[in-house]
Amino acid sequence: MCGVNHKSFARPGYLIDVSADSIAAKGALFTRLLAHHGEVGLTGEQIAGLLDLSCEYHGRQIEIRIEMARLAEEIEHKRGRLEARAIAERKPLLDRRAELFRADEALFFTFAARGHELLSDDQLDRIDRIYHAEKDAGLAALARSLCNAVSPTFYFGPAVTS
């Protein structure tokens, strides 16, 4: 086992990161849909609509994240002892940052739903199949490593030694 105390060291085997990141996509939405536009059968109008939504989402997300960064700087304790009064004064700022974190995730779901409104049920079924096939292939490629990170006895194939 590595003896270096890496940043965010709660990562057994360096495969699992337990940070408190938002589930919201960063920057762009619908990338898989757009990458598979032919297989999914997207029309030019649908592609333009998805691109417009992605652009609007990104702009609104940047606004939220700029405000979160501004608040983080304001919350930061810069000098001296951190006393109860200073902590209490930061509570409204911490609450606002938590609200913005929630807004960021809600924004993701709002825009994803708006994108789904542009698609037929058949197109959604096609992209679901593509997504799950890609995800399953990625997880299958990592299966031995993930199992060995937890315990070599969890994997029923040949032991991985490197």
Rank of each mutant, 00 (worst) to 15 (best):
A88S: 08
E76H: 15
D95C: 01
R60M: 06
I130H: 02
A113E: 13
H77E: 11
S120T: 15
S145R: 14
S162P: 01
V4W: 10
S54P: 06
D104L: 11
L142P: 00
V150Q: 09
V40G: 03
L82H: 15
R144K: 14
K91V: 12
D52N: 13
A98E: 07
R79W: 15
G138N: 04
D104Q: 15
S151L: 05
V4S: 03
K135M: 09
A98F: 00
E99H: 13
L124S: 08
T161M: 08
G157D: 03
S22E: 07
F9M: 02
L53H: 14
S151N: 14
L51M: 11
L100M: 03
L29T: 08
L51G: 04
F111E: 01
L15V: 08
P158T: 10
A141C: 02
D128P: 01
N5Q: 09
K26A: 04
R60F: 06
E99A: 13
S120A: 06
R85Y: 07
L82G: 06
I75D: 00
L124V: 12
A20R: 12
Q123F: 11
F154C: 04
D17A: 08
A88C: 05
H116V: 06
G27K: 12
R65C: 05
A25C: 01
P158F: 10
D136F: 02
A25T: 03
T31R: 14
I75Q: 07
A86C: 04
V4A: 07
D104F: 01
A106G: 04
F109D: 15
L146C: 08
A112W: 06
P12R: 13
K135D: 01
H37L: 00
F101S: 08
L107F: 15
A149P: 06
R144M: 06
P152A: 05
A143F: 02
P12L: 07
G44F: 11
E105D: 15
L146R: 11
K26I: 07
G59E: 10
R70G: 05
R11E: 05
H36D: 02
L94E: 01
A88Q: 09
P152E: 07
Y155D: 01
F156W: 05
V40L: 01
L100E: 00
H77A: 13
R60W: 08
L142H: 09
T43F: 06
I127R: 10
M1A: 09
A86P: 00
T110N: 06
G49Q: 08
A69Y: 14
G115W: 14
I130L: 05
H6E: 06
R11I: 00
R11M: 11
I62T: 13
E73Q: 14
L118F: 05
A103H: 14
L71I: 14
P152D: 04
A88W: 12
I87D: 04
F9T: 03
V4R: 05
T110P: 01
E117I: 00
L42P: 06
C2K: 12
E89L: 07
G13W: 02
G138C: 02
I66Q: 15
I127E: 13
A159C: 04
K91I: 09
A28E: 10
S8T: 07
A143G: 00
I16V: 09
Y155A: 02
P92E: 03
S145Q: 13
G27W: 08
A143C: 00
A20P: 00
F156G: 03
G80M: 09
